[in-house]
Design a protein around this nucleic acid. Sequence first.
DNA 1: GAGTTTGAAACT
DNA 2: CAGTTTCAAACTC
Length: 447
Amino acid sequence: MHTCIFLARLTIMRAFVFSRKRVSYTTENVGCKRCNCKRSKCLKLYCECFAAGVYCAEPCACLECFNKPEYEDTVLSTRQQIESRNPLAFAPKIVCRVTEFPANSGEDSNRMTPSSARHKRGCNCKKSLCLKKYCECFQAGVGCSEGCRCEGCKNVYGMKEEIVYKRADERREDVSGKKMGMVETRSEILHSEQCHPQHLSPLTPSFQCSNHGKDILRSRLPVRRYLPSPESDTTVLSSYGKSPLSPVDSNNNERQQKMSVEIVDMISYDQDVDCLTSGEMDQFSPRWDGLVDMCDLTPKPHPPSRAMVSSASSNSKDCKKVLRAQLCHRNGRLSAISSLRQSSPITPVTQLGGSKFPQESDSDSALYGILEDDTPDILKDTPTPIKTVKASSPNQKRVSPPHSRLHELRSSSSPGLRSGRKFILQAVPSFPPLTPYSDPKSCSSEK
DNA sequence: GAGTTTGAAACT
DNA sequence: CAGTTTCAAACTC
């Protein structure tokens, strides 16, 4: 169970931290760098805000911006259109896969490590050597993978060749029943953290806001070198060089806990948190399905482990249950997490009115049926030949959240959410809001 | 701050 | 699907 929670945290953290570029929010959103679109009208994936599923806000320096609450319909239809072209367009780019271990014994049968967070689509770098933020993998703080088509990869988070080699190695060792070698080492580190809760913040998503995630990431990094965190422009070693028990962590612990509640509540965040999280919190909506990715993992029985905290269930279902239970336990309103797996990052639920929560892929088709002519007038001068829409969700996972819940959630107010400066596209939550949404229309006056 | 480089997204 | 163009962020000076 702890493993599951742990992975959930990690995945969420990654989703937040790595999926967006330099979006540095403060509570006041002062000096925040947001998009700077000149020609895309903030209605294409070029636009960071749009891609992130949030409305542009004051910090944006965009021109002719249509990514605003008042153009909600346009935004939604545009998203719809883009999704029809590429169903994964708004899906989190970083997914956290799990290293699965062969079944050896009943004990610790749920051992898994988030050893392979990767860019879903992979990069295509030619000149940056995957060492600059041009590289999405590097920017996301993840290693390149087989899916990357990069040339001369030197990604410090994991080179493509290295990954391929290690995976082959893992498979070989798994088959031979040998000990896990490097993988084991990594998982041991991970494991160590799991087994020593004092090393971690409590079981709340706050973990994602700490640098624990980075520590974990670091644990996956070659020991030989540390480079500046992609999230840090100034710190050379960043948190990668810190011990998990570093003072920073302990100092952060309390506020991490606080943060966790805020994250879970999807309310505005504490600006006191480090830049890792502060810039990402209100990008929440479209990234929550990172959790989905995590939960989609299907851990297999694992070999015995000395001290594995392993009350986790051995299947993703249970994992989700555990996660849900855990989160619900921490936040009564979090029952919405039960919809994690069903939610779509891109489904414009508002257009579905109060319809019932559709089931899985059916929802998509239903949705698409509703949203037909999806070419926004605004963009019709640049027509896109999309007329038919895929009826099924690419991974069969992205479905609208329960509207009844949404409705419930909306009907209650969340001061924290209202305090957020960013308009999350309420209509296209990737993940059912964990706290009430504030109606974009009602809060459009905030802007 | 302007100009350049880069690679993703969009288009053909 | 491959090649090209457009775009905006990252980067350099």
